[in-house]
């Protein structure tokens, strides 16, 4: 028992350091990914092919290839054509682009699930397409967006563990390093799992609170 407490005292500070990086990477990528996903979704449903075609190409590219390949391309291949991006920024870029592609599909599906009559009612009042989208359509998608967005952001949280492959020191990397140093694989990995779970379950809890609030509208 004393040994267990001793190990824990040694492990936790190390893991906390990693968790900080993981959270930073996740939150920043989630914000950019959501913005990007929203824009890509709007572009994709546009009737203007100059908007919808590039958006479709982007979504297909990033959903159709492995995340690891995307990260490595940004980190290893871009410098060969003269685009050098520091590791952390490269990771943010990769995760944002990847999450953006998935979020674009989530948002698009949510928008298209809203009854066509809503847009027609808004337009018949003289609202522009953009105004109708912003004031009438998008707010109605929030409730439907919550569950798939929680999935996506949880996936993003867990996928940041791949960032160690482009030399980012995050939770997984710290954890692994600690194991190689101490051989305390079980203790370390269980604590690591607990850290990831706290993050993903907080997300779910936050979402269900928001869901309750939105439900008040009947």
């Amino acid at each position: 028992m004393a040994k267990f407490i001793n190990h824990t005292i040694n492990i936790l500070p190390v893991l906390f350091e990693g968790l900080g990086v993981t959270l930073k990477l996740t939150v920043i990528s989630a914000i950019f990914g959501t913005l990007l996903g929203l824009l890509a979704a709007l572009a994709r449903i546009s009737r203007n092919p100059l908007l919808s075609a590039p958006a479709a190409a982007y979504v297909n590219l990033f959903r159709g290839t492995p995340l690891l390949l995307q990260l490595l391309t940004i980190y290893n291949a871009l410098p060969q054509v003269g685009i050098k991006i520091p590791a952390f920024q490269a990771a943010v870029l990769g995760y944002s682009l990847n999450a953006g592609a998935y979020i674009a599909e989530i948002v698009r599906a949510a928008i298209q699930s809203i009854d066509r009559g809503q847009m027609e009612a808004a337009r018949s009042l003289g609202m522009s397409y953009g105004l109708a989208m912003r004031r009438v359509i998008l707010p109605q998608t929030y409730r439907r967006l919550l569950p798939p967005m929680v999935n996506e952001l949880s996936a993003l949280t867990k996928d940041t563990s791949l960032a160690s492959t482009i030399s980012i020191l995050e939770l997984m990397k710290y954890s692994n390093q600690f194991v190689s140093r101490t051989n305390l694989a079980w203790q370390t990995y269980i604590w690591t799992a607990a850290f990831y779970m706290v993050v993903t379950m907080s997300l779910s809890a936050l979402a269900s609170r928001m869901e309750k609030k939105l439900e008040a509208r009947g």
Partner: peptide, 8 residues
């Protein structure tokens, strides 16, 4: 409209 289309 027939189906009201109020903003819910």
């Amino acid at each position: 409209f027939q189906r009201f289309n109020l903003f819910p």
